[in-house]
């Protein structure tokens, strides 16, 4: 690809209000992950702008972006992305380490987050000693330990069986009821059905948005 420009997203524009639960759908290669990377402040749009809490992310330094990811956002990945050979509790503590909290505060908040995802008692298990569903719960605990306003989940159930998928989706629904905004990428319609709003991508463009369709 080298110097060649590839437009992964074209003319994409949408608003998400606080407390929404949004599912992003679309075929593979349609630009869902690219969109999530921008929403997650991991990537900046080459043109256009992204406002988070009314602030334009475009002009920020890498350190400011790191701070936003740390304090306002929580990430859940398809492949869990936990640190191997590191106890679950320390994985959950990780965002607090970079937030500069001391060891005692970190441990207290991490224990609360572990309880919230129903993993009390598994604090010292390493990821390899946990099932896929449990690993994803650890990842969710890590995403919510910093009390973020938004949780971004890219195909969080892609690696899980259907009963585990139900558990995880139950967890997301509960977190959404507590006021956390959730934006989730998924292929599956029954997973997308948990969300209050579905946005569908095709070839880098939004082809349908259930919120807009309703007002139509």
């Amino acid at each position: 690809m080298g110097d060649q420009q590839f437009e992964a997203l074209k003319g994409v524009s949408f608003d998400v209000t606080a407390g929404e639960f949004v599912a992003i759908m679309g075929a593979s290669g349609s630009g869902k992950s690219t969109c999530m990377n921008i929403l997650g402040c991991l990537d900046l749009p080459s043109s256009g702008s992204y406002l988070l809490d009314g602030l334009d992310v475009g002009g920020m330094t890498t350190n400011q972006l790191a701070d936003i990811r740390n304090k306002k956002l929580g990430f859940v990945f398809q492949g869990f992305n936990l640190l191997a050979r590191t106890p679950a509790i320390e994985n959950v503590e990780l965002p607090l380490v970079y937030a500069g909290l001391n060891a005692k505060e970190r441990r207290q908040q991490a224990i609360v987050a572990m309880e919230q995802v129903g993993l009390a008692g598994k604090e010292n298990n390493h990821p390899s000693q946990l099932s896929g569903g449990q690993q994803q719960r650890v990842a969710i605990a890590r995403a919510l330990v910093n009390n973020p306003s938004v949780i971004l989940a890219d195909e969080p159930t892609g690696n899980l069986d259907s009963s585990t998928t139900e558990e995880i989706m139950g967890l997301f629904t509960a977190l959404n009821r507590q006021g956390i905004t959730i934006i989730m990428v998924t292929h599956e319609h029954d997973v997308a059905a948990y969300a209050g709003r579905q946005i569908t991508f095709k070839d880098g463009r939004i082809i349908s948005d259930s919120k807009i369709n309703q007002t139509d």
Binding site: T62, R69, F75, L83, L94
Partner: peptide, 16 residues
Amino acid sequence: TREIGIRMAIGAKKND
């Protein structure tokens, strides 16, 4: 590399 990516995604700065 992946570990570094995870750490950066959840808030590690370059200096960290």
